[in-house]
Design a protein around this nucleic acid. Structure first.
Length: 565
DNA sequence: AGTCCTCACCGG
DNA sequence: AACTCCGGTGAGGACT
């Protein structure tokens, strides 16, 4: 059933609980029970647990071996509801929400603690702010009401419910960790960077490359210092504006090859080297900290460990346990398919209704079979390409897929004009950055945002409109990327549920924007792959209603993550 | 000694 | 050809 109960840890220990009625109000007396986990465990009939913060309470339940099917995260919902009302930036804690209800001074949100890699505790639960249970219940009932005031109440309810499901997934991902072979990782580092010397300094291979760079310049150059490299090129008579790889690649100088190779290894050493291994991998698992909804578009972020930026070469260390497999599933062309579903463009829906190569299908319709041109045009429409081939091809897009292009154009226009912009489910874009509240410059128009580049006249004509255009590109992308994140949350929720209902040992162990990894016994792998595909279809129907658009996944069953692509 | 900023790279 | 959208990460250095 859909029965909801609210629960909170009691101050002196134990739990406070109460069933809720259809309006989200207490349907009985609040009861106190001595054991939080037991109170939840003993009520499997509860359809959804309503609580202040999943990150605070759910790890404690998991510690006690208690899993819940569904929850409602009040502080996450507060953030989404405030955003929908255009009140981005107001404190989202339950304490703040309660104060607002009673027109009392609103306390600021507590700061998030800094990263502590060695710690096992959650990074996102600063210090629990105590909120009396009855105050929490008032906030929930008010949120229940506020959903009905949104543009699409059904979608908004789906948004808060699915992001709450994401919170459950995140807590479980944090606990499970990604299988990680530290021995393989170390061997990889030795192979790529060279062995480390006892006295410190660069590892062998990197030291060799640094020497090659210095020899090519005829003087000692530290390749990891952009300023030093630019100066060295200047002394060699070559002007470079930066030491970015794409710029260096076009430079004709004997140092370039070694320099690029060094920078590649330097990046691996600093971001995913021995120190990283020490900090983030324990007991054969990499434990990042996932934060659902950490970006304004609804994409997740991780705090620490760089879990969403694991270099391809390092993925060789991600290896399933003996007898187990990694089922790696990647949503195919997620964003164009989502654009088809939200814009209802007939041509694009038609194309997205097939599970084959979407860009090929687009190219057959509008680009005489030129797949590359089609891909650039589709992505250009989504990203707001302003120059180059994308612009030329955009005209063809506009002819063949007018409603799709109109949809993102309208989002861009709304952004430029400072209107609210929302994803399909109702996640709302924050106002333009720039009016910095800390300095009380509320009256500043949005176009006074970021500082102009050095040397650029601060009030040059055209400066404002340039920033407005940047804002338009942002909101144009926001509706697509954000609606895709909406869909992906529903995928995660459906997948989590079906893996559990099937009674499998399979575990979600990784999530990255459009990709999931499930770790499972080899004999479950086929069923897991099917569950992922089914979750994608179900999420499409739930999020967007009946639509011909399909949401296929490329699924690989592997022992090593690096073999998935 | 701590904080903030820039750079350049990783991923989607 | 150029670096469009969304982020995290560390190092180094400038600054307080």
């Amino acid at each position: 059933m859909n029965d909801r109960w609210a629960v909170a840890a009691a101050e002196g220990g134990g739990a406070l609980l109460v069933p809720l009625d259809r309006d989200g109000r207490p349907a009985a007396e609040v009861r106190h029970e001595p054991d939080l986990a037991e109170a939840v465990r003993s009520r499997p009939e509860v359809g959804r647990w309503v609580w202040r913060s999943t990150a605070e309470i759910y790890p404690r339940l998991l510690d006690a071996g208690v899993r819940v099917d569904r929850c409602y995260d009040i502080e996450d919902a507060e953030l989404l509801l405030l955003g929908h009302a255009g009140r981005w930036g107001e404190p989202r804690s339950a304490a703040a929400a309660h104060a607002r209800l009673h027109h009392r001074p609103v306390p600021p949100d507590p700061p998030v603690r800094s990263v502590d890699p060695g710690s096992q505790s959650s990074l996102f639960e600063p210090q629990p702010v105590h909120v009396p249970f009855d105050a929490l219940l008032e906030v929930y009932a008010d949120q229940h009401r506020r959903h009905n005031e949104t543009e699409h109440p059904g979608r908004m309810r789906l948004l808060t419910a699915s992001e709450s499901a994401g919170m459950l997934v995140a807590a479980e991902l944090n606990r499970a960790g990604l299988p990680w072979r530290a021995d393989v990782h170390r061997a990889l580092l030795d192979e790529l960077l060279g062995e480390r010397y006892a006295g410190g300094g660069d590892p062998r291979r990197m030291a060799e490359l640094a020497d090659e760079v210095s020899q090519a310049f005829g003087r000692r150059v530290r390749p990891e210092l952009p300023a030093d490299v630019i100066k060295a090129f200047g002394q060699a008579g070559i002007k470079v504006k930066s030491t970015r790889r794409w710029e260096l690649e076009s430079v004709d100088h004997p140092a370039v090859e070694s320099l690029i190779a060094y920078k590649k290894l330097y990046r691996i050493m600093t971001a995913h080297g021995w120190g990283w291994l020490q900090d983030w991998v324990r007991d054969g698992r990499f434990h990042p900290e996932y934060l659902p909804g950490g970006t304004v578009t609804g994409r997740w972020v991780t705090n620490g460990g760089g879990a969403l930026q694991i270099p391809k070469v390092i993925r060789r260390a991600v290896i399933a346990d003996p007898g187990w497999r990694l089922v790696v599933a990647d949503a195919d062309q997620m964003e164009p398919r989502v654009l088809a579903a939200i814009s209802r463009d007939p041509g694009l829906m038609d194309v997205a209704g097939q599970s084959g190569d979407l860009y090929k299908a687009v190219s057959d319709r509008a680009f005489s079979g030129d797949r590359e041109a089609a891909k650039i045009a589709v992505l250009g429409a989504i990203y707001g390409q302003t120059s180059g081939d994308g612009l030329k091809n955009l005209a063809a897009m506009r002819r063949r897929f007018p409603r799709a292009v109109d949809y993102v154009d309208e989002a861009a226009r709304a952004g430029e004009e400072g209107r609210l912009v929302r994803t399909w489910l109702g996640r709302t874009c924050p106002p333009a950055v720039g009016a910095d509240e800390d300095f009380g410059e509320a009256g500043l128009p949005q176009e006074d945002g970021p500082e102009p580049a050095a040397g650029e006249p601060e009030f040059a004509p055209g400066y404002a409109s340039r920033n407005n255009r940047a804002r338009g590109r942002f909101t144009r992308n926001f509706v697509v990327q954000g609606s895709a994140a909406d869909w992906m949350l529903l995928v995660l929720a459906a997948l989590r549920r079906s893996l559990h209902q099937a009674g499998m040992k399979a575990q979600l162990v990784f999530f990255q924007h459009d990709e999931v990894i499930v770790h499972c016994p080899a004999e479950e792998a086929a069923a897991v792959a099917e569950a992922i595909r089914a979750a994608g279809d179900l999420a499409g129907r739930i999020a967007f209603g009946e639509t011909p658009a399909r949401f296929p996944f490329t699924v690989a069953e592997v022992e090593c993550y690096a073999d998935a692509k």
